[in-house]
Design a protein around this nucleic acid. Structure first.
Lengths: 339, 339
DNA sequence: GGGGCAATGATACTCGTATGTCAACGGAAA
DNA sequence: TTTCCGTTGACATACGAGTATCATTGCCCC
C-alpha cells in the first residue's frame, strides 16, 4: 500500500482544523451562498491543506444517487464494444458520472450477475448490450428504478429504451445487394445466435432476403462460429469454404474480423477478390477501407451508440428527458471493391 | 425509467415480511452459522419473494471496503488497452470486485480527476497507466491507503508497484536488430512523448541503440504523431517518408496501427516490403502475422498485463500478498518477413 | 430601543447495514 | 432443580455526509 498509515480525512477533520462547526463546513460545500466568502475561503484553504476528499459513498447513501452508471458489454478486446465503452465514458466524464464496466463474455449468467451488482451498488442507470437476457435479468431491469438502455440493436419489445440500429434490416440490405450483383452461391458466416439477438436478427435478415429472392437456404448456406470472432477464425473459415466441392462465389461475414482474415488469406494465396470470391463484412473497422482490395461492409458507429446511450441516460436523469424512446443510430452500406 | 414506483427494498422490509427481527436477518446474511437452518431458509425465501438486494453502498460505509477497483486507461478504442481492461475485469469478476473504468485521453488532468473520483468513491485499489502523472495525482496516489499499480511500463521510481514490460529495452532490441540487418537509413515513428513515459522510453531506447552503434540521430530520424495512433496516420506517414529526397530503408513504428497503415499503403502502391523499405511495428495485433508480408514487431500481451495487475491487487487486498514488487510481463521480438 | 437580517452554531435525525452488549426464552444435560 | 447452550431479540452505536429546526450572535437602519 502506498502509505497505509494515513487515516481517512472526514468533514469533521476539516471542521476541527478550521475551528468552524461541522454544519458551517457542510454548508460551505452544499449551499455556498449561505456562507460568508471569507469563511468559505478559509474552509477551502483547510481542505487543501489536510487533503479532504468527500466520501461519495456516504453522500450517496443520503442523496439516493450514486453518480455511477453500469455498463455491460460482451467483450472488449479488439471489438467495436471498446469504441462503444469509450463513447459512453466520453459523455459521462463531464457529467461527473462514473462508468462501472462489466464484461459478460456473452454469458447471460454473467450479465445477470453484473446487473445485480449494479443494482446493489445503487447505479443510477444501466446500459446492457442487446435484448438477450436471462429471465431474472429481465425481471431485475424491469423493477429497476432508473433508466435502462438496451444497446446495439432495435426491437419492438424493449425493457425501457433502446439505442442501436436495425441489425435485421442491415443484413437484409447487404444480402439483397449481393443478390443484385448476381452472385449465385452466397454463403453467410455468423456468430452463434444462441443468446445473441444481434447474430439472430442478422441471420434472420439474411435468410429472409435470400428466400424473398427465391434463393434456397440450406445447411450449407449458413456457417456458424463461436464468439469471439477473430481474424484467425476467418482464415480457417475461408479455407474450409473454398475447399468445398461447390465453392461459394460470395461470402457475407456477419463480423468484421473474420472477413479481414478471409481477405488476407486470399491475398496471400492468390485467390482473387472479388474475382474468385466476393467478400463482405459487418462493422467497418478502419482497416477495411485501406485493404489493397477495399472491403464492402456495413458501417456501424460503435462510438456513436455509446455516446447516444449515455446522452439518453443523462437526459433522463437530469430531467432534460425526452421520454423513453428508442434511438436509431443507423448503419450504412459501404460498397467497395471486394464485391 | 423501468418502473419508477418500486421503492428500494431494505433489510428492514425483509425483517417485517418474515416476522423476524432485523438483527436476526442481518446475522443470517453475515454470520449464517449463528442462525438456525430453518430460520435461514425462511429468510432466504422472503428475500427471494420481495426481491431484496443488499445496498452495497451502505455496507461499504461500515466495512470500509467498496469492492471496487479504479482503472485508468488512455484510450480504449482499437487498442491493446481494451485487452488490458478485459484482463483486469476477468480477474476481478470471480473475486466479486467491480471495475471502475475511466478513459484519460492521455491527459494528466483527466487522469487526476479520475483518481480523485476513485478515492472519493472509496476504491480499494487503483490501477493507472504508466508513470506520467500530474504532481497532484502523484500526491493523491502516494497518500492513498490501498494498493496502487502503475501498468504498462517499468521504471525504478514507482509509487507503489508496477506491472508491465521494459519499453526501453524493447525499443533498444528492435533497433539493434534493424541495425544488424544492415539497414542504413532507419527512421523511427512514435507518438508524442510529452506526458507519455512509454513513448518517451521507447524513443530513448531507439536513440541510445542508434548512437551506441555509431549512427547519427538527426531531426529527420525521428517523426512524431499525435495520439491516438491510427491506421490512417500510418498511411499519411509512409507517403511523407517515401516522398523524402533521402528515403529511409527501414521504418520502426512505435505503435502497431500506423505500421499496418504503412504496410497496406505499400501493398496497394507497389512498394515492396522489405525490398524497398522495411517496416517494423510495436504491439503485435493478430493482423500482423497474417498480412501477405507478415510484419516484424514487438509482441506485447495487453491482456496479461491486465490480469497480472488485477491479481497483484487482489493478492494484496486479500493478504495473500506478496510485497509491493514490480512485475515484468516481458515482451518478445517477433521477427517476420517485413524486415 | 426595537425590528430585521446575515452568519454561525447546537441538536437531533436520516440514509441502510453492521456489530457489540445484554436479555430472554426453551430445552437438554448435570 | 440448577446450569448451560442455542437461538432470537432489544437497544445502542457506528460509518460519513446531509438536512431541518431552532438558537445565538453582531450589525444596520428606522
Amino acid at each position: 500500500m502506498a502509505q497505509g498509515d494515513n487515516r481517512k480525512v472526514t468533514l469533521k477533520d476539516v471542521s476541527k482544523a478550521s475551528g468552524l462547526s461541522l454544519i458551517t463546513v457542510s454548508r460551505a460545500l452544499r449551499q455556498p451562498e449561505t456562507v460568508h466568502a471569507d469563511t468559505r475561503a478559509r474552509i477551502q484553504r483547510t481542505i487543501d491543506e489536510i487533503g479532504y476528499i468527500p466520501n461519495l459513498t456516504a453522500r450517496s447513501l443520503v442523496s439516493q444517487r450514486s453518480d455511477m452508471i453500469g455498463v455491460v458489454v460482451p467483450i472488449l478486446a479488439s471489438s467495436l464494444f471498446a469504441d462503444f465503452a469509450q463513447g459512453v465514458s466520453r459523455v459521462l466524464e463531464p457529467e461527473k458520472q462514473q462508468m462501472l464496466l462489466a464484461v459478460s463474455d456473452w454469458s447471460p449468467q454473467k450479465e445477470e450477475e453484473a446487473v445485480r451488482t449494479f443494482i446493489a451498488r445503487q447505479a443510477d442507470a444501466i446500459i446492457v448490450t442487446g435484448f438477450s437476457h436471462s429471465d431474472t435479468t429481465r425481471k431485475l431491469l424491469g423493477k429497476f428504478s432508473g433508466p435502462v438502455v438496451e444497446a446495439w440493436n432495435l426491437r419492438d419489445s424493449v425493457i425501457d429504451s433502446a439505442v442501436g440500429f436495425d441489425n435485421y434490416a442491415a443484413a437484409v440490405e447487404m444480402t439483397r445487394y449481393l443478390i443484385g450483383r448476381g452472385y449465385q452461391d452466397i454463403v453467410m458466416v455468423g456468430g452463434a445466435s444462441h443468446h445473441n439477438d444481434q447474430a439472430e436478427d442478422r441471420t434472420r435478415g439474411f435468410v429472409d432476403a435470400m428466400r424473398g429472392a427465391g434463393r434456397s437456404v440450406t445447411q450449407d448456406t449458413i456457417v456458424e462460429f463461436d464468439n469471439p470472432a477473430t481474424i484467425e477464425g476467418g482464415v480457417a473459415l475461408i479455407q474450409q469454404l473454398l475447399g468445398r466441392k461447390r465453392k461459394p462465389d460470395a461470402i457475407f461475414f456477419l463480423a468484421e474480423l473474420p472477413a479481414h482474415g478471409a481477405m488476407l488469406w486470399c491475398m496471400s494465396n492468390g485467390v482473387s477478390v472479388p474475382g474468385d470470391v466476393a467478400i463482405a463484412g459487418f462493422g467497418d473497422l478502419s482497416l477495411s477501407a485501406l485493404l489493397p482490395v477495399p472491403m464492402t461492409t456495413v458501417q456501424i458507429k460503435g462510438r456513436d451508440i455509446g455516446e447516444r446511450s449515455a446522452s439518453l441516460v443523462m437526459d433522463r436523469l437530469e430531467g432534460r428527458a425526452d421520454s423513453a424512446a428508442s434511438h436509431d443510430i443507423g448503419y450504412h452500406l459501404q460498397i467497395r471493391e471486394s464485391t
